[in-house]
């Protein structure tokens, strides 16, 4: 991806919880068509950064500028959370999986397409009477869901409750659900946590495929093998500050990064217990 343009520009991002400084003057750029990884030890502020970008937290300082391919710009820090997903088209998954556990896999993917479906029901009224374009819209939504079920290898489980899926399948379903919103930027919070090596390899391929089809990714991950394999660009956070920024090769060679994170205990870094946050 030569000379990719900026998709998300984070400038001077700060987030404070009372006395805790979770993020302090963090700046980076995620480019269109790339997988940008965010790494760092637990408590570094990675999830907090995601929560700021996706509107779950309002940053205490800084700006978040997202630019679509058609040139439309969005100042994410000033937008309500649901509009960030709806208009700016930023989708996300959660570190501790958040599926609609009592609904089926297919239902989960249809809820993700709620906004276009709702528009087709005439605000819910016409569809009750069986009028409007609803039938066609639903067929279209199910087709899209089926596509993502195939890509995440969940088609056989389509009618099972999401809460009954094994862990790895739940992680994949969350990605499928996020992709059903047609995002331009997909933020994944530790998608490989708890996966076995075979599942992680499949995830590699899935993420590369998503990137190659034009959706950029922001990826928080502790599995350094995976990060080095799939990322185009890596950002290192530590104690709320940015420690380094570069290609996988550069990051591997950066002495500060090695000291803070990679070098000390690569074994440990791979198996860090997930912290909780939304």
């Amino acid at each position: 991806m030569a000379a990719a343009e900026a998709l998300l520009e984070v400038r001077g991002l700060g987030m404070r919880f009372g006395g805790i400084v979770a993020l302090d003057d963090v700046s980076f750029t995620a480019r269109r068509g790339e997988i940008t990884a965010v790494i760092g030890p637990n408590g570094a502020g990675k999830t907090t950064a995601f929560n700021c970008i996706t509107g779950f937290y309002r940053p205490s300082a800084g700006s978040l500028q997202l630019t679509h391919a058609d040139g439309r710009g969005f100042a994410l820090a000033a937008m309500p959370g649901h509009l960030i997903a709806r208009r700016a088209r930023v989708a996300r998954t959660f570190q501790n999986i958040r599926l609609f556990a009592g609904m089926t896999v297919l239902e989960n993917l249809l809820v993700a397409q709620h906004v276009p479906l709702m528009a087709a029901t005439g605000l819910g009224v016409l569809a009750i009477l069986g009028l409007g374009r609803y039938r066609a819209a639903e067929r279209h939504a199910i087709a899209k869901a089926r596509l993502w079920l195939e890509r995440t290898d969940l088609l056989a489980r389509a009618d099972d409750p999401a809460g009954a899926l094994p862990y790895g399948a739940q992680r994949r379903l969350e990605i499928a659900r996020a992709m059903c919103t047609d995002p331009v930027l997909l933020c994944l919070d530790e998608p490989a946590a708890g996966l076995n090596p075979r599942e992680t390899a499949a995830l590699d391929a899935l993420l590369r495929g998503i990137r190659d089809e034009g959706c950029s990714l922001l990826l928080i991950e502790h599995d350094m093998g995976m990060v080095m394999r799939v990322s185009d660009h890596i950002i290192v956070l530590d104690h709320g500050r940015k420690l380094g920024d570069g290609t996988p090769a550069e990051i591997r060679a950066d002495p500060r990064v090695i000291a803070a994170y990679l070098g000390e205990d690569e074994e440990d870094a791979d198996h860090l217990a997930p912290a909780d946050a939304p």
Partner: peptide, 17 residues
């Protein structure tokens, strides 16, 4: 369907727009 999704998980709903 979205009412039920809301009962299941509000935060996930918000992340879906």
């Amino acid at each position: 369907r979205v009412w039920e999704a809301l009962r299941e998980d509000e935060i996930a709903c918000r992340s879906l727009g």
